[in-house]
Each structure stands twice: as structure tokens, then as C-alpha cells.
Simulated assay, not measured.
Amino acid sequence: MPHLETKRLRGRGAVVALGVSVLLTAVALPAQAKVLAKVNGVEISDDDVKTALDDLGSGLPRQLEGKARENYVLDFLIDEQLVVQKAQRDKLGESPDFAKKLAYLRDKALMESLLGKIAKDAVTEDAIKKTYDEAAKNQKPETEVHAHHILVPTEDEAKAALKRVKGGEDFGKVADEVSKDPGARGGDLGWFTKDRMVPEFAEAAYKLEPGQISDPVKTQFGWHVIKLDEKRPKVFPPLDQVREQVSRYVAQKAQSDLIVQLREGAKIERTEAPAEEKPAEKKPEEKKPAEKKK
């Protein structure tokens, strides 16, 4: 099992693993560190596991939690140390190329440490609330609708479906039987704004009043029968629902602001002019008639 786990986690490359391990083994363990394993006499502590968890966190299997997660990383560190010791015996750490890579890793670790501190300091409750309030204030008034639809290939099929629902059959039942939109169970599209749908569909849906059913509507996807359920002003999500996204934005903005500030105060000289990039050809955004609001 450990060798398989090493394969899963070596995405950062063997060089990174070797470089980090050399740095770890070169530093004396703090007095309070608890030794969890020894590999040919080299100690691996709970502090090492914590450092590795911070580094590898996003690459670990999601189903692992608590002690199982720590044991998984400890096995990785044991395998890593075995590989490191072999690399040291082969004197791979003495080459000029390795020294360059180690210097790069040191710079990268310093950068990540500073940016991490900047992000941590920036994400305060006041900053989160201020950012959220500004976003809520700047949201333009907009109407969103909740609708169902039936999507079929031909106009005749759309007319047949329309006849069934106007004859009293349940719209959702008919949709489940004939609609070609697999993403809308019972034809339910959820809540959406006008810009989320292709123009022909959006125009037809927004002309309806709650409870009304449209005549067949043609779009690039086929023929639709639309039933409008409700209309309402678009509701800005509560802070608790978007706290994670707001926190991420605050952190990233603080980091970006620092980079801009450092660039403005630095003397940066390029020995070669950057290559001119050709503007990418902008493709029209393809909208789906049954795209659910997430």
C-alpha cells in the first residue's frame, strides 16, 4: 500500500520530495515534537506530518479524515525518506542542477509563506462583511423566473405535447415521457435569469405569466413547450451561503494588491522583450436552454 500511495502523491515530482526532505532532515526537531516513526534512524515527527498535510492537502483522497488521513501521510513520509536516503547514497544532492532546484524550492516556499500570511491577515470578519455588503449593494435589480419545459426535435411533437398538457395531463409527467432534455427532471429548470438561456427561449419564457404555457418555441436545440411557474426579483444570496467564496476573494485580492505594490516599487529589467501575444479569437458563448441555476 505505501508504494501505491507514493505514486498517487508524487504529482509535485521526485525533485520536490527530495528537496523538502533534505530541508526537513537538516533542521533539528523542536523539543515538543513527537516522534512517530524512524527510518534507518531518521526520525519523522508529528510536525513533519503537519507540514506534509499543509503541502499535500488538496491532493489527498477526500474520503480520508482524521487519524486515517494522518496515517496516510505518515506512510508517504516513510516512503519518501527511503527514497531520499537512496538518493543521498547515490549523491544526487551534490549536483549543480539539484542545487538550482533546491534554491528554486526555497524561493517558492518563501513566496508561499508570505502570501499565506497576507491572506490570513486579510480575511477578517470585517473585511468579509464589507466585501459582501458592497457586492450586494452593486447588484442591479433583475427578475428571475422558475419554469418547466418540454424539449422535442420537431414542431409536430411539440404541438402534440402541448395538446396533452392543455388537455389536463401533468406537465412534469409529459416532460418525463417525451422531453429530450436529460438535465431537467420533470422538465424543471429551476430559477434562472434572462441571460442564462438562449434568446428565443428567454424571450418566450419572460413573456409568460405564472401558470401560463407557451406555444411551441424553436431554438437551436429543438422545439420547446414552456410553462412558467413563478417570477420574483433576483435574491442576493445570504452571507452564510457565500462566505467561502467571499473569503477566497478577499484573500486573493490582498495577495494581488501586494504583488502590484511590490512591482510598482521595484526596478525590473528584462533582457529580452516579451513576445507579442496574438489576441485569441473570441468564440460566442453557447447557452443551454435547460441550464440549471446552481
Results as ranks from 00 to 15, higher is better:
Gln32Trp: 13
Lys34Gln: 15
Thr143Asp: 06
Val22Ile: 09
Gly57Ile: 12
Gly186Leu: 01
Glu264Phe: 00
Ser95Glu: 08
Arg106Asp: 13
Val225His: 00
Val198Thr: 09
Arg164Gln: 05
Phe76Gly: 10
Ser21Asn: 10
Pro96Leu: 13
Lys86Glu: 12
Asp75Lys: 11
Val260Phe: 04
Leu36Cys: 12
Ala204Phe: 00
Val145Tyr: 02
Ile268Met: 01
Lys34Asn: 15
Val165Ile: 14
Gly186Arg: 03
Gly13Glu: 11
Asp229Thr: 08
Arg263Val: 13
Pro61Lys: 07
Arg185Glu: 12
Leu105Pro: 03
Pro61Val: 06
Ala99Met: 08
Glu276Pro: 02
Val217Gln: 04
Ala31Val: 11
Gln81Met: 15
Asn40Ile: 12
Glu155Trp: 00
Asp48Glu: 06
Glu125Thr: 12
Tyr249Phe: 08
Asp47Arg: 14
Arg106Phe: 02
Leu23Met: 13
Arg164Val: 04
Ala280Met: 14
Glu142Lys: 12
Lys137Gln: 07
Lys130Gln: 13
Phe236Ser: 05
Val152Met: 05
Asp156Glu: 09
Lys140Trp: 02
Leu262Met: 15
Glu200Leu: 08
Arg270Gln: 10
Phe236Trp: 10
Ala273Tyr: 04
Pro289Tyr: 04
Ala266Gly: 04
Leu9Ala: 11
Gln252Pro: 00
Gly190Thr: 02
Gly222Asn: 06
Ile150Met: 02
Phe221Ser: 09
Asp55Leu: 14
Arg10Phe: 02
Glu276His: 05
Ala122Trp: 04
Gly116Met: 03
Val15Met: 15
Asp121Arg: 13
Lys163Trp: 02
Pro274His: 08
Tyr72Ser: 06
Lys278Ala: 12
Ala158Trp: 01
Glu200Asn: 08
Arg243Pro: 09
Glu155Ile: 03
Ile78Pro: 03
Lys231Val: 10
Ser179Ile: 13
Leu151Glu: 02
Ala290Ile: 01
Arg69Pro: 00
Val165Asn: 03
Ala14Ile: 09
Glu65Pro: 00
Ala251Pro: 11
Lys282Glu: 15
